[in-house]
Design a protein around this nucleic acid. Sequence first.
DNA 1: CAGGATCCCTCTAGATACTG
DNA 2: CAGTATCTAGAGGGATCCTG
Lengths: 136, 136
Amino acid sequence: MDQAVRSAVKAATADCDRNAWDAGNCPVRDVMNRISGKWSTLLLEALAEKPHRFGELRRLVPDISQRMLTQTLRDLQRDGYIEREVFPTKPPSVEYRMTPLGRSLFGPLSKVLAWAAENHDAVRAARRSFDDAGLA
Amino acid sequence: MDQAVRSAVKAATADCDRNAWDAGNCPVRDVMNRISGKWSTLLLEALAEKPHRFGELRRLVPDISQRMLTQTLRDLQRDGYIEREVFPTKPPSVEYRMTPLGRSLFGPLSKVLAWAAENHDAVRAARRSFDDAGLA
DNA sequence: CAGGATCCCTCTAGATACTG
DNA sequence: CAGTATCTAGAGGGATCCTG
């Protein structure tokens, strides 16, 4: 980890200390809380590629309930990561697309997702050996 | 986002598709689920700097309960991100430290944490304007 | 000191049904 | 098509007491 990143993280940590790690004032927790939802990263991943309509997103993430799809999209929109555009056709259609802020987040975030894909086996192996050691 | 990252993410997505985004088989969800816990990133942040004992960690993250500290540490250990070493002194002391796997995760992850620190204000602004628009 | 065990509660997320 | 409303189960998380 280079020095620039290290000091940025340290600054964030310092903020948390001053505010007793209050969720609302700690940048790390405030931002992570949202992107760490069960579906957030999957939707960001889908919308990072290109804009999608509601129904398309539902098909891209088959096991999401329509309630959680709506809610997660609204949360992402509220934090400024995605935009919602309504086309007053009949029947109506709605398109979701990433904002510049969302793209700027997805840059670093995608690196973590890539890490997950590359190291998934290592994690599963660690998990197995932990369980086999009887510490489960 | 460069091409290497893009294709790695795409590969992960493809895996998820084949398995209907099953939590156990989707690398993204499997890894993100753990590091997205309420306390995981804060503890990784603390242990990235240097090893710490149980009591030190508790002081570093004042508002964590001892139950959640124990549980989160065990989860991180199970996935191979941190190590636990017991020193049979009297009274006993236990030290936690990051593993190579943990460090390799924390590289990309720290970039996201830095992003959170830098863009926290932008997110809060987006949130306010969303709420003021009456869409809350 | 570093936890384990227990009780309890909130909040998230899923299922189902209905609407402009 | 793209949602909203309601109900409910279950996980995540907290408080407290106990122990090697």
